[in-house]
């Protein structure tokens, strides 16, 4: 598989479970070394952020402390780190929940805190590993728009991993489709239309066409592997 992410570009990675999506993500984050091949990153340490399927917050820390954590780990003073965390939480609309603990937040709110934590370091590369998979449909759609709005403000390159075709098409300007066999790309689909998405985008002809193209490619990839 060969995957390139342009500066400030959003690429979605779609594929069935076990196709190596999450592994690709960990390779890009530098958390694992590739067995073969290489990973070239313009974004260095401290410029990459990660959001998992679960919010992955520390339950003993307030929302604010959780968001400030990456900055504090990088050696920033507590006061300044908390100031920036405060800003990041405001950006995801959670100023009121600063002092709440993760156990007191709803699933959607916890995910927003996780997003704020990922953005607080102003990353050039943002890796989203099925970030909405555990949320209900309505929360999922609101959060999808929020991520796109935040992207428009901060312009990180985003790799968005999902197994949901519609979500992939909605979130990205390019969708890379994986085959069922691990570590192989079946091809990619360019999605028409502006980002962030205008209202009613899901009902548009462009959305439908792209989703169909991705679905077809997914099905072919499954057949080839079988």
């Amino acid at each position: 598989m060969d995957l390139t992410l342009g500066v400030g570009e959003i690429v979605a990675l779609v594929g069935p479970s076990g196709c190596g999506k999450s592994t690709a993500m960990r390779l890009l984050a530098g958390l694992e070394q590739p067995v073969r091949g290489e990973v070239d990153r313009a974004a260095g340490r401290g410029e990459t952020s990660l959001v998992f399927q679960a919010p992955t917050l520390a339950p003993w820390m307030s929302a604010l402390a959780n968001v400030a954590l990456p900055l504090e780990l990088a050696g920033m003073g507590r006061g300044e780190a908390r100031d920036q965390a405060h800003e990041a939480l405001a950006r995801v609309g959670l100023s009121a929940a600063e002092n709440a603990r993760p156990a007191q937040l709803s699933g959607g709110m916890a995910m927003r805190v996780s997003l704020a934590r990922a953005l607080v370091t102003r990353p050039r590369l943002l890796l989203l590993d099925e970030p909405f998979a555990a949320l209900d449909e309505i929360t999922r759609r609101t959060l999808a728009d929020d991520v796109l709005t935040l992207w428009a403000e901060l312009k990180p390159a985003i790799l968005f991993v999902t197994h949901n075709v519609e979500e992939a098409v909605y979130m990205a300007s390019r969708v890379v489709v994986m085959t069922a066999g691990p570590g192989r790309a079946a091809g990619e689909v360019a999605v028409e239309g502006p980002l962030p998405r205008p209202a009613g985008f899901r009902a548009s002809e462009g959305f439908r066409r792209s989703a169909e193209a991705v679905s077809t490619m997914l099905a072919q990839g499954m057949e080839r592997a079988a």
Partner: peptide, 17 residues
């Protein structure tokens, strides 16, 4: 939590941190 530990690694946490 292994994912939380991955985040600590990603953000360059030291052994003591």
């Amino acid at each position: 939590d292994p994912d939380l530990e991955r985040l600590f690694d990603l953000y360059g946490a030291s052994r003591w941190q």
